[in-house]
Design a protein around this nucleic acid. Structure first.
Lengths: 143, 143
DNA sequence: TTGCAAATGAGAACTATTATCATTTGCTTC
DNA sequence: GAAGCAAATGATAATAGTTCTCATTTGCAA
């Protein structure tokens, strides 16, 4: 078992409980980087872990507040979470298959800061989502 | 009365009805550029126009599909609509008061296209939202 | 090993939105 | 202008995603 996880939780002021460890494990060890609450719930169920949906929502929110996870809002009002690895980035979302790819562009970042400050805003946060079709990629939902 | 509105509707293949004219009027003549379905519903109610909430949602969606309005999804799953005036732009949203300001930056736009195509995506659409605090602006919700 | 606050799970409640369906309305034809 | 009919509307039920409530359980410290 991973000795690391309880420390993450402790540092965040959160008790080290079974549901929290399972959920954190999904993000740290799982293959999916981006998961919605529903995704997490289903994965837990299908691996035989009996965690309530309310707990999933609660824990994801706590992890977000603790800075362990980052939450992204995509179109249609769905939100997904991913491990916070400190490096900010934006997203390209495939409209065909939902595949999410990350990118970072310093030029865009600095333009944004400039634009906001010119207009008298102090930037807290931003989200940039490019909605596109995978052209060269293999897209599991198109045949 | 505005002779223009029925033509917009007709061109969009939509019958010119009382609720549709009122809603379009709110966007064309009202002071708010960005309104959620709930905003529109409340404005209609308070001006004595008796339009059902379901109709508001339906009409907004139709207007969006007809290209009369553009829909934006903001954090927290709320979506707002604004008149489509042909010019794409992005948004700065004030976290204190919800005020929405528009901007357009050619450098950001072209970087986005470049990034997507380098990665094998054909861009359909994108959304860039900067969440910030009004620093110099007067913000009705902070005193 | 007991005690107690914190966490959980089940389900109710809530919010935003969409669907259903009987009634009403706008346009077309006479 | 009146009749007919499809389209549009409004009330309400349904749905999806998420949060709240509260009785029960659990983690951890004494």
């Amino acid at each position: 078992m991973d000795k690391n996880q309880p420390e993450h939780l402790k540092n965040a002021g959160l008790k080290s409980t079974v549901p929290r460890l399972k959920i954190l494990g999904l993000f740290e060890l799982g293959q999916e980087r981006h998961m919605s609450a529903e995704d997490v719930y289903k994965k837990l169920l299908s691996s035989g872990d009996d965690v309530g949906l309310a707990t999933v929502y609660r824990v994801l929110t706590q992890f977000e507040q603790a800075g362990l996870l980052v939450r992204h809002y995509f179109e249609g009002g769905k939100s997904v979470f991913e491990l916070n690895q400190g490096k900010h980035h934006d997203h390209i979302v495939c409209l065909q298959c939902g595949h999410v790819e990350e990118f970072y562009d310093a030029a865009i970042e600095s333009r944004q800061k400039k634009i906001a400050s010119e207009r008298g805003f102090a930037v807290h946060d931003h989200s940039l989502h490019i909605y596109a079709d995978c052209v060269k990629k293999q897209c599991p939902y198109k045949q």
